[in-house]
Amino acid sequence: MKLDINNTPDTIYATLSGRLDTAASSDFSRDMMPMMDDASKHIVLDCSQLEFISSSGLRLLLMLRKQTIAQGGDITIKGVNDAVKQVFTITGFYALFNFE
C-alpha cells in the first residue's frame, strides 16, 4: 500500500496504490491523517493503481467519509478496477462516495 497526498488550498489530490488489506490498514490509517485533518476540502482519491481492498480498508474509507460529512467536504473516488468496484457494490459503499 502506498498513499501519495498533494494538498492544495481547495482540493486534496491523493493516489492510493497496491493492496489495502488488513496487513496494510494500520499504515493507511496513519498515512490518511492529513486527509482526516483537512476533511472540509474536496478530496479526489485516485484508485487506478489499487489492486485489492478488504473490509479493513473499507472501514477506514468509511471513517474518512464520515469525517468529510462532519467537516463539510466530500470525496470523489477515481479509476477503481472491476474487482474493487464489486467490493464497493456488495457492501453498499458505492452509494456513499462519488465515483468517476
Binding site: S55, R59, L62, M63, I69, V87, T91
Partner: peptide
Amino acid sequence: DLPVEERPIGGLGIML
C-alpha cells in the same frame, strides 16, 4: 439502507 452517518463500521466482512 442507513445513511452514511449511521453506518456501522463492522459487519461488512461476513457480507462479503
